[in-house]
Amino acid sequence: MMYEIRFHGRGGQGAVTAAALLCRAGFLAGKKGVQAFPLFGAERRGAPVKAFARIDDEEIVLASQIYEPDYVFVFEEWLIEYAIEGLKKDGWMIINTKKKPEDFDLDCKIATTDATGIALSNNLKVAGFPVINSSILGAFPKVCEEIKLEHITQAIKNYWPGDIGKNNAHACEQAFNATEVKE
């Protein structure tokens, strides 16, 4: 079974790294096929960016962008209208927000977590901007049972050795615990 995941963020928020981390987590979960790639225009810090990930039990040969994702990550609420495009009917939208899933009227399953708040409380910032990728990934094991929280926190710790990794993994756990879902 192949899962296709799409990330919608802004340059600097870490969407591209989030896709890569999810892949690495997939690999730790024993998946043979993992794939993560960004969609670059000429984006600079702050501009909208898209990134993609595929996770499969088998090797992945597909080399195109993702048009009908199973999951979308939304790093800022205003990106919902782009993220919903093509999302499968029973697909999940994971939103970085202080709001509850019930606050959204969308034709999909919803998970929410305050990734920005958690990132800031853990002082995860680059050039003054909160980097929310490690936090928002914490919501994923709540909505996809194939990837466990420990796979993600391990991938984070492998990617950032030392205290940085520990801080990010901690934020990820906090976000996991704070995630609310509506099927």
Binding site: F27, V34, A36, F37, P38
Partner: peptide, 9 residues
């Protein structure tokens, strides 16, 4: 990008 920037095993 399709290969150069795509992470895989």
């Amino acid at each position: 990008f399709v290969i150069s920037h795509t992470l895989q095993n």
